[in-house]
């Protein structure tokens, strides 16, 4: 009985409630911090760049003259690079994920491979730039062209894609594949007709998110030696190119020479953000549209 009295009388209820509110405020402030930074960043960029965006800016060629400079070349460069990155990462990434998740036996070798893929996902992107420079630009002698840039970025996002595709495959309920095996379907028939269709929405979401990462990457491209000022538009895999993040990078550096370049950089950031925003929306739409109930 003494214990019970202690429970009701000496329970420091006020102090506990106060402690709860303090922790709640701390967590709220952490969230607020991120939000404020984001808003300041976007507001500043918009303020600086939005008046520079018009049809001419989007469609014109690059120029040293800030008033005449346009980013069509960089947009096309980004598109061409993506045309390399998308098929390479999807085929190799989904293929590896299927092998690791569905064919390979659980064991030391598989865990070793998976651990290394996760580690690769954390390697700084500039290291991939060095790899690309050594292998694609010099060893294979492509030069700093679309193909070399695309393959380098593909390598960069592959580990992320493999991990997310593996998770997507793992999320397909086992009772569905059991039903298929139970009717005498082979592994490939089960993968092709049951597991892949169920996993494709999450695989696509994962790929689009990793592709957005590839679009925004700058560091590996600087290492590859992507030119600062490139007037002609790229038209093929073996053309030299520049990409949107590269353009932002060079204009920001050169803003000390020509003040308007800072505004051009801000305008380009807005365009890049818009592209990323559209890509992410597509990912969400795909996910919502094809999501299945089990």
């Amino acid at each position: 009985m003494e214990n019970l009295e202690a429970l009701h009388e000496n329970n420091k209820m006020d102090a506990r409630v106060r402690k709860n509110s303090i922790w709640k405020s701390i967590f709220f402030l952490s969230t607020l911090f991120g939000l404020v930074v984001l808003v300041v960043l976007i507001a500043r960029v918009l303020f600086q760049g939005v008046s520079w965006i018009d049809l001419d800016f989007i469609t014109a060629r690059l120029s040293t003259n800030a008033d005449r400079a346009g980013i069509m070349g960089a947009i096309l460069g980004t598109v061409w690079v993506m045309l390399v990155v998308i098929p390479v990462t999807l085929i190799i990434g989904v293929g590896s994920a299927i092998y690791l998740e569905l064919y390979s036996k659980k064991g030391i070798i598989r865990s070793f491979i998976e651990m290394n893929i996760s580690n690769l996902a954390g390697v700084p992107s500039i290291v991939y730039g060095l790899l690309g420079l050594t292998v694609f630009v010099r060893l294979m002698d492509f030069g700093n062209v679309v193909l070399a840039g695309g393959l380098t970025l593909a390598l960069l996002v592959l580990p992320i894609l493999i991990v997310s595709a593996q998770e997507a495959l793992r999320a397909v309920p086992g009772h569905l594949s059991e039903a298929s095996y139970g009717m005498g379907a082979t592994k490939w028939q089960t993968i092709r007709r049951i597991i892949l269709p169920a996993a494709i929405p999450s695989i696509l979401t994962g790929s689009i998110l990793s592709l957005s990462r590839a679009i925004g990457e700058t560091a590996p491209l600087t290492v590859l030696g992507i030119p600062a000022l490139l007037i002609p538009f790229p038209g093929g895999l073996f053309d030299t190119f520049t990409a949107l993040p590269m353009q932002i990078y060079y204009w920001t550096i050169d803003a000390s020479l020509v003040a308007e370049y800072a505004n051009l950089a801000a305008a380009t950031i807005i365009v890049l953000l818009l592209i990323l925003f559209i890509l992410n929306s597509v990912a969400i739409i795909i996910r919502n549209k094809f999501q299945q109930r089990y």
Binding site: P173, H175, L176, E178, A179, S180, Y181, G182, M183, G184, A185, T186, I194, A198, Q292, R293, Y294
Partner: peptide, 18 residues
């Protein structure tokens, strides 16, 4: 695969395909 086309199975939880 051949065995399982001659021996069908019905599972504990109804598991139709989506």
């Amino acid at each position: 695969e051949d065995l399982r086309t001659r021996v069908g199975m019905v599972f504990q939880k109804p598991n139709p395909f989506p």
